[in-house]
Design a protein around this nucleic acid. Sequence first.
DNA 1: GCCAACGTTGGC
DNA 2: GCCAACGTTGGC
Length: 137
Amino acid sequence: MVHHWLVKSEPSAYAWEDLVKDGKTAWTGVRNFQARNNLRAMKKGDLVLFYQSVSAPSVRGITQVVKEAYQDGTAHEGDWSCVDLKSVRNLPTPVTLAEIKADPKLAEMALIKQSRLSVMPVTREEYKRILELAGMN
DNA sequence: GCCAACGTTGGC
DNA sequence: GCCAACGTTGGC
């Protein structure tokens, strides 16, 4: 059973274009318990939306979990995890935060309800709706 | 650049 | 255990 997720990144830290170029990356640096627990719940093959925060906030692409949670080597103290994500495809049209907020079907998204959470589950319906808005039918 | 919302820390 | 102070995130 494939589950769906959304991760955030500021383009100044790690942009969607960086992941497209790299192909794959270790999703390190998460230092929030709830976000960490979400990372740990990810399974290989799960699909993860890449959301760009702060600058032109929008969902930019689709990624996939290629390695499940393991020790985040960038953490010098504490019990933190990361996963490996690979880029799967670029969204033909990014789905902006404004569009998401304006869409009744997406009103319950954690992205809206818990604006500071950086790794969150997305329902199957929400995932499908985002792809629709991105022009992928 | 500003500021609201939120998570964490630490004094009591 | 409460809550004020503080730091960070992220929208605008």
